[in-house]
Amino acid sequence: MLEGKLEQASLFKKVVEAVRELVQDCNFDCTENGLALQAMDTSHVSLVSLLLTADGFSEYRCDRNLALGINLVSLTKILRCGNNEDILTLEAGDSADSLVVRFENTQQDRMSEYALKLMDIDQEHLGIPETEYAASITMPSTEFQRICRDMQSISESITIDCTKGGVKFTCEGDIGSGSVTLKPNSSADKPELCTKIDLSEPVSLTLSTKYLLNFCKATGLSQQVTLKLADENPILVEYPLSAGHLRFYLAPKLDE
């Protein structure tokens, strides 16, 4: 039996909004540690890995591991029936064929309850290898979104070059080219606006603009985003949550 209560429905709504274009059907794996989701997009180019830890819920109970097969388009329809500020409760029995979604307003004088039919999804979990990343860049998530947005109209690919001196995003297309360079900076009073680079060696990756921009749907979940890069390896784009994380992996483009 799963019972999870979130004080604000907005967290769950935003998380589902952020992944629903990449993934249509997926299992929410419920354990005593929390809710997790791991799924690839249909073209097997990117992978979403979500973790909402139990301590992020005001109430959480899961006495037996459950895999809830959910169609995210359907879940979105139900989540839109609740307001962002509502208290959200997710409930499913051990052999339930539906997930109960309850909303309660902050005045506690309006309760609504919806049931989402569950699906049987045969999903393969990929083993994500431990990677020693050459560079880790933490920057404002809005800045990353802006770069991806600006470059989408110029090129299908963005190359990220990271050195000690800074990180450079470059794009090259039919109409011309562009680049944005960010240098590490710090501001004690506004740490969310800092750009931080941890580098063991210079690294360069070429990535699909479309997918990177898709990851930016998570911008509203976190003021900062971390990009982790290793040569010829998938990039890890991580949005930290107050209790858990939303991670995206994207395979690089390689010169043939």
Binding site: M40, S43, H44, V45, S46, L47, E124, H125, L126, G127, I128, P129, S157, T206, S208, N233, P234, Y249, L250, A251, P252, K253, L254, D255, E256
Partner: peptide
């Protein structure tokens, strides 16, 4: 143009 790789090339199937 560089070619898009798939993730299964990097991440192991169970």
């Amino acid at each position: 143009q560089p070619s898009q790789q798939t993730l299964t090339r990097f991440f192991a199937r169970p």
